[in-house]
Amino acid sequence: MKRARTIAWIKGLVAIVVTAVVFLVPFAFVLLQAAKTPDDASNLTFSWPTHWQFFQNLRDVLATNDGLIWRAFANSAILTVGSVTIMVILAAMVGYVLQRKASRLNPVINFFVLAGLIVPPAVVPTIWLLQGVGLFKTMFGMILVEATFGLSFCILLFRAFVGTIPRELDEAAVLDGAGPIRLFFRVILPLLRPVIVTVIVVQAVAVFNDFAGPLYFLPGDENATVQLTLYQFQGQNLSFYNLLFMDILLITIPPLVAYIFFNRQIVAGLTSGAVKG
C-alpha cells in the first residue's frame, strides 16, 4: 500500500512537470511578451522583459486604430449574445417537441439535425444568399448564420435533457389548465435551466472564438470581431509583437472567466455523448 502511494506521488509529479512545460510555458510566453517593449518582444525569445511595461502596452493596444479593439469587443459581444439567444430558444422548442411527440416527421428531423452537425457549410453560396436577402456584411445576418450553424448541437442537448423530465408533469400542468405555450414557457423552460446554462456557455465560447464565420460573412473594419482584429494585427504590425500578444491576452479573458465560473456546465455539455453514445 505504501509502495502504491509512492508510485502515485511520482506519477503525479512527473505529470505536473510535463504539463507545466507543455501547457504553462506557452501561456507564460504570452504574458511575458505582452509586458515587453516593442524591440524586446520582436526578438521572440523566451526571456524576462528588460523593461516591464505591461500597463502601458494595455493602454496602447486599447488605443490603436482609434480604439478598434473596443469596437471589436462590442461587435463580438453583440454577435455572441444575439446568436446564442436565438439558438437557446429555437433549439429548446425543437428539442422539446421532438422528444415529447411521436410523429412521422421525427426521423426526417433527426436526419437533418445530424446533417447539420456533419455537413460543412457551403461558404460562397451562403454569401450569395445573404446578398440576395440584403444581409451580407450586416451584424444581423451574421447573427442568424451563427445561430443556424449552432442549432443542431443545441437541439441534441435539449432533446436528451427533456427526456429526463417526467411527462406526468406536463399532464399535471394541462389538468391545471395550461395551454401549449404556457406549458412550454412556464413549466418546461424553467426546468431546462441546467442544460440552458450548458448550451449558453459552450456556444458562447464557440461563437466568440469563431474566425471563419466573420471572415467570410462579416468583412469590413467597422464590423470586425475580436478574432479578426487579432488576425489583422498579425498581418500589419509585425514590429509590435508586444501589442499583438497583449491582444491575445485580452481575447483570452472572456473564455477564461467562463471556464472559471461554469467549469461543470462546460464539461457536462461537451461530454454528453460519452456515456450513452
Binding site: 425543437v94 411527440k101 443556424t148 394541462v174 412550454f184
Partner: peptide, 19 residues
Amino acid sequence: SFYPSWFFIPAVVMYVVFF
C-alpha cells in the same frame, strides 16, 4: 395537441434559408 408542431417552424426556416 399540447406539443405543437409549429414549434419547429422558426428553426426550420432558419435551417432551410441559411443552411
